[in-house]
């Protein structure tokens, strides 16, 4: 009946039991049964944590709040309205004003350029170097030919 969301890194997308284990972050609240009595953290019944599909649809902006009906669904709506008021603070966050200046100061002085692999780079040689290379190869060939004739 329990699911450790943190251990699986969320890579498994198949629907499973939806109750996470308490983690070391320690923000786990205590849970109540339908009659209000306290339960141990590890005994959370699935029906208490399963968010109704309509609530997900409302949170995803697919339906208006007025389409969400039922006492249980409205409890979820109220919960998410409270969370949303705190999320709004996060939405208003801005990068520090001097961050751009600090990044610009830390940039390398050189202009960025495309670094292509050596086999894809154009070969540049001046005519003098070409002539010298040709003369060298000719001399090497002559020497090799002479040694083979002996």
């Amino acid at each position: 009946m329990h699911d450790d969301l943190t251990a699986r890194e969320g890579h498994d997308e198949t629907p499973r039991s939806r109750v996470p284990e308490p983690t070391k972050a320690g923000a786990v609240g205590r849970h109540r049964t339908t009659d209000g009595s306290r339960m141990a953290d590890r005994e959370v019944p699935i029906e208490l944590t399963r968010t109704p599909d309509l609530v997900h649809a409302w949170l995803d902006g697919e339906i208006p709040e007025s389409s969400v009906r039922g006492e249980e669904a409205m409890r979820h709506v109220e919960f998410w309205k409270r969370v949303d008021s705190d999320l709004e603070v996060k939405r208003q966050m801005h990068a520090p004003a001097d961050l751009t200046d600090r990044i610009m100061a830390a940039l390398p002085e050189t202009t960025p350029s495309l670094v292509s692999p050596w086999w894809n780079r154009p070969i540049e040689m001046n005519p003098l170097a070409v002539a010298a290379a040709a003369a060298g190869l000719l001399a090497l060939g002559t020497a090799l030919g002479a040694s083979l004739k002996r």
Binding site: R18, F79, W80
Partner: peptide, 15 residues
């Protein structure tokens, strides 16, 4: 969806 449900378990009492 899974993140929401996990957060709701973690925050239910506080909120």
């Amino acid at each position: 969806h899974r993140a929401r449900e996990a957060l709701q378990v973690l925050l239910e009492e506080k909120y």
